[in-house]
Nucleic acid binder design. Structure first.
Lengths: 249, 249
DNA sequence: GGGTTTCACGCAAAAACCTGCAAGAACCGC
DNA sequence: GCGGTTCTTGCAGGTTTTTGCGTGAAACCC
């Protein structure tokens, strides 16, 4: 096989699979590992791929995962926040969890909205405080330094005493069979209580988290009223949720 | 799996779910725990995530909140905070109000202190959260946007249920005849409850506020145990308070 | 304070890498 | 066609990276 041919083959392969291994390539093309290495080196210098120890990665791969944006998927969360904000009407009593998506929601609330927001999330409360006309109620209890939210029996007790019109949950994983799940026991208790205390449950998540699973169960799909992602509501990935009776926005 | 792939996977996971556990990761990727640890360490050094015992946290979620907008008499408040911090011993249960002096106190706490801090002040809670080893308890209720503190019956009720070893009050005015006074009705109610619930009351103030008066009464001089200013304890302006039996630091 | 988990450091083996070299292939001008 | 040049490739060696393991220290939980 000619050198040019070989390099074209490698490039094709790396673009197709986002990665190649030197060891597999040399086995496949039947040349020495040195030759593959030299090819990869050359292609890397010409900027066609990214050389790493043991093989090479496509440029697409690198772009996909080396996003240096501060908040992950910031733009997508802004879209979600916009959609969510439109659900809040004047006079409503709204319960929210924490998380970056909820913070975006807080920023996206229309300036003239008059409503009451309840949360145990310190960063969320900080954002709500900036708003000129909404009332803010903080749920008290022990502060979890990881999740920056108040957790514990007191907090759950307070939430139980509430009847909210709307509950916004920033969720970490959702799955048609298991519903929403999370990885922090205390936070899950909070969210469960929130779901119980609300007339309408709205889940916010970037589409990446759809059909993923975490260890601890929050609520099943039939307890969710609305699902908001950055995607169009008729995206095929959302179909199972629409079929399950969830309003997808 | 290539090293870079693995790290990208970890980063993706931590951004998606806010936190990862080393043990779960090594199980998932099928490498030794050491390798995961090394990856996390490396990613942490490159500032991509925050390494903690047992796993890692997403960076976006742990961003610092720069509450460091210009503070009036900053240097003096730092001195006060230093003196105040020295009063807190391991295992203590400490009740604090809000205010910039209290924020400085939070920053001045020794790194290895183990104690429980209770407050309704959102900026103060934010600072306490940064501390590695203190427990933080947030008093919940309606949030006052002016004073950035939770106010109302619920908050007062919760404070009443507490028996604190120490209470730090950032005060706005003190006077030998009227004691400490303030100008916000709701905040005063809170502070009164704090004084009642604490074995020892410590007032923090810059000397400028000494011998000044505000409309609403918090507590009289004989309810104050310690007074901390930026001045030397034997400064003549403080003599009346020493004579009244207050420990002046 | 004791027991468990997690971490850090060093070590060793394996894998991958780099360098230089030489044999052969391809090329080029005559 | 032919000598010289350049290019390509594989190999030998020594170096670096990566990884897993063992040990003791540190951190954490109750």
């Amino acid at each position: 096989m000619l050198k040019k041919e070989r390099q074209a083959y490698i490039l094709h392969k790396v673009n197709l699979h986002n990665r190649v291994l030197s060891s597999l390539l040399c086995d496949e093309i039947q040349v020495s590992e040195d030759t593959i290495r030299r090819d990869l080196h050359e292609l890397a210098q010409r900027g066609k791929l990214i050389k790493v120890h043991g093989g090479a990665l496509s440029h697409a791969f690198n772009e996909k995962y080396n996003t240096s944006s501060h908040i992950y998927s910031h733009d997508q969360k802004k879209i979600i926040a916009q959609k969510a904000a439109s659900l809040v009407k004047n006079g409503m009593f709204v319960l929210t969890s924490g998380g970056t998506t909820i913070i975006e929601l807080a920023r996206a609330l229309p300036h003239d909205l008059r409503a009451t927001f309840v949360s145990g999330s310190i960063p969320a409360i900080l954002e709500y405080m900036q708003h000129p006309s909404i009332d803010v109620i903080m749920i008290g209890d022990r502060v979890s330094k990881n999740s920056k939210i108040t957790i514990g029996g007191e907090a759950i007790e307070k939430i139980r005493q509430i009847r909210a019109d709307l509950c916004f949950l920033g969720i970490n994983a959702i799955d048609i069979r298991h519903g929403t799940t999370d990885n922090d026991w205390d936070v899950v208790q909070l969210k469960k209580a929130m779901v119980e205390s609300s007339r309408k449950v709205v889940c916010l998540t970037i589409s990446e988290k759809i059909n993923t699973l975490q260890p601890i169960h929050i609520c099943s799909v039939d307890q969710i009223d609305v699902l908001i992602t950055e995607l169009s509501p008729d995206d095929p990935i959302l179909k199972p949720y629409r079929d399950a009776g969830i309003e997808v926005i």
